[in-house]
Design a protein around this nucleic acid. Structure first.
Lengths: 230, 230
DNA sequence: TCAGACAAGTTGTCAAGACAACATGACTTG
DNA sequence: CAAGTCATGTTGTCTTGACAACTTGTCTGA
């Protein structure tokens, strides 16, 4: 990186441009995880800006979890943290991948009128390993919020991705309630862990309901959760 | 507010002191939701600090969702959004308040060397209603990360608040694992829901471990969870 | 009375500078 | 060779200063 790529005539503030540039360099592999990037003083000189401007840029990346500053040592690239996906908060995808669970759509989306959230598409998924059912999930998606869902291929498809790419929706909050139940017709005798979950999309509340069942002796139900970050 | 309460001899940076002071004023009702607080220039004069120092303080509160800055207009108090508190992700505070559960510290923080996270302060909390134990929680806090914890009064005190105000730490991620257990000496026969939780503070991983037990027939264990927001 | 212009106030961005508190590496001494 | 010291480099905190971009209120003219 020999020359500054900052555009001093742009309406985009310099610190944002620099943050974008650094973020890009990192994602392009110019700086590996654990690498120390150039010092603030050096970046300021290279880009012909003041050090506080550099700090504003690196502040942004620190808050995004991309960089970590260590006083006296420098500024380092952090590993990319796995984004919490509220749709597959079934447990971690890793846990399911580790046991090579097979996901099966038991029933295609069916329009129902008497669901927990009114008129909704109902569907059921099963995760199993060698014919042992690890997880059972019933899902209801608001029919008005997700129009014509039945037209989309769901088998072998990530629901989260479909909702994001087709409907341009992404849940930002969820509520979950835990219970222990005695038994389930498909899973057999208990005790079974039941997780009742409601997903919200901004101000659109309760647009997805899900009920999940699993047996905790055979399946380690784990989650990564975060606090809100304004 | 006639006189600055900032201690210029304190090792606590001025901007943190000012942020704490403003946060306190707001929580004490000195500024109502929607109120405009003093201008940055005015605050700087009043507290005999520079404007960038005031901005650092208000930056913190903006990021906490306490304040909102509007260019040209001023800085305003936001409604308190129910913050996901990873410490008391015990269920919602509301659920506990609704049943007027009593929180009792069973043992004060005791320094232990063989805990799940090495040398840590161990403590135990019990939530009960009319002598029925709803919830039992064992907590370990890293002794190096939270030095001299035993010197602080914990009974009837929010752990989350203490960690924030005394140690200026706030967990940003947690991992939780669910299991169903048969019984517990204090809670009796099962099945009981067990939640094993690990809290992370930025790049400082596993600084708090907690294990929580409850009986889901008598206590509705719910959580609000969010996705990360870059 | 209403709309437009202008002034004053406020936040957003940016600079140069300084010192404190730390980390790291090199050198010296036992 | 290991431990201690010192020098250099780096981030953290803080200052004064300036101008841009906006908001809000007031005044004037139609």
């Amino acid at each position: 990186m020999d020359k500054s790529a900052l555009n001093f005539d742009s309406p985009v503030p310099l610190y944002r441009q620099l943050a974008d540039l650094l973020r890009r360099e990192i994602s392009e592999g110019q700086h590996a995880v654990g690498d120390r990037i150039e010092s603030e003083h050096s970046l300021a000189q290279r880009h012909t800006v003041g050090r506080p401007t550099v700090r504003q840029a690196t502040d942004m990346l620190v808050r995004e979890g991309v960089l970590q500053r260590r006083r006296g040592a420098g500024t380092f690239v952090l590993p990319t943290t796995e984004r919490v996906d509220l749709f597959s908060l079934v447990g971690t995808s890793e846990a399911l991948r580790a046991v090579e669970a097979r996901c099966e759509l038991l029933s295609p989306p069916t329009l129902r009128h008497n669901t927990p959230i009114g008129t909704a598409y109902a569907l059921q998924r099963k995760y199993s390993v060698q014919d042992e059912v690890l997880l059972l999930e019933d899902i209801w998606l608001d029919a008005t919020f997700f129009p014509r869902l039945e037209q989309h291929e769901l088998a072998g498809q990530s629901l989260s991705r479909l909702v994001r790419e087709v409907y341009h929706r992404e849940p930002d909050r969820a509520e979950q309630r835990f219970a222990i139940v005695d038994s389930d017709p498909l899973m057999g005798a208990g005790p079974l862990l039941s997780v009742h979950r409601r997903l919200h999309f901004g101000e659109h509340l309760d647009k997805v309901h899900a009920v999940l069942l699993c047996r905790t002796e055979t399946f380690q139900f784990t989650q990564t959760i975060t606090t809100t970050r304004p």
